[in-house]
Amino acid sequence: MPTETTTSTGSQFTSSPRGAQLARRLAVRRMEDWGHPAASDASCAVALVVGELAANAVRHGRVPGRGFSLRLTLDAAAGLVRIEVADAVSVKRPPTTPPTPHPESESGRGLLLVDVLAVRWGSAPRHPVGKTVWAEVSV
């Protein structure tokens, strides 16, 4: 595993379920590049968080003609991977604590998973437009 911070930047995806799937696959490949096999706990956790944040960007942050971006940063010294998913919608920011879905509901658990798997997570405005939802996962 590298000893310095390694960054993957500028990955753009279409705002579609296929785009979210490709973002997750890219995360798994990047984790392999950083020494974490696809079946490892660290890679699976990062892939799940990327999948949830990308799916939320597609579902809640979609603007016609605009995609979403993914940035992954490995801080090997701290043992963290930072995941950033940016979309073009500013007004729909995630809650600071995940909502509790109805037990029979078929959706609404994504941020609960992110909250469990991430050391910390949050969101920030993106200039000139949009927001970035980020999470840090231990590796």
Rank of each mutant, 00 (worst) to 15 (best):
S11V: 09
V91G: 04
D115I: 02
M1W: 02
L48H: 10
P125M: 00
D87F: 07
T9Q: 09
P2I: 05
G51W: 11
G19N: 10
A38V: 00
H36M: 07
P64W: 04
S8A: 14
E106W: 11
R109C: 04
T100Y: 08
A27K: 01
L26F: 09
L117T: 00
P37M: 04
P94T: 04
S16F: 09
D115Q: 07
V46K: 02
R66C: 06
S15D: 03
R120Y: 06
S138P: 00
H102F: 08
T73I: 15
V50W: 13
E52T: 05
A78I: 09
R18A: 15
T5L: 10
A47P: 07
S15R: 01
E84P: 00
F13R: 02
F13T: 05
R109T: 11
L72D: 12
H102P: 00
G110H: 14
A118W: 15
L74P: 01
T5S: 14
V133T: 15
P95Y: 11
R66H: 13
H60C: 03
V129L: 11
G51L: 13
H36K: 10
Q21T: 13
L80I: 06
M1A: 14
A76G: 06
T100K: 09
S90C: 03
L113E: 05
R126N: 06
V49G: 02
A135D: 05
V81D: 11
A47Q: 02
L48S: 09
V139D: 10
S16H: 10
V91D: 15
E106R: 03
T132H: 02
P99H: 12
A86Y: 04
P17M: 10
A20G: 15
P95T: 12
A23D: 06
H36T: 01
A38D: 01
L22H: 08
F68R: 03
P17H: 13
G10W: 06
A57C: 06
S40H: 13
V63G: 01
V46W: 08
A39I: 03
L70I: 09
R24H: 02
D41A: 13
V85P: 01
V50H: 10
R30K: 15
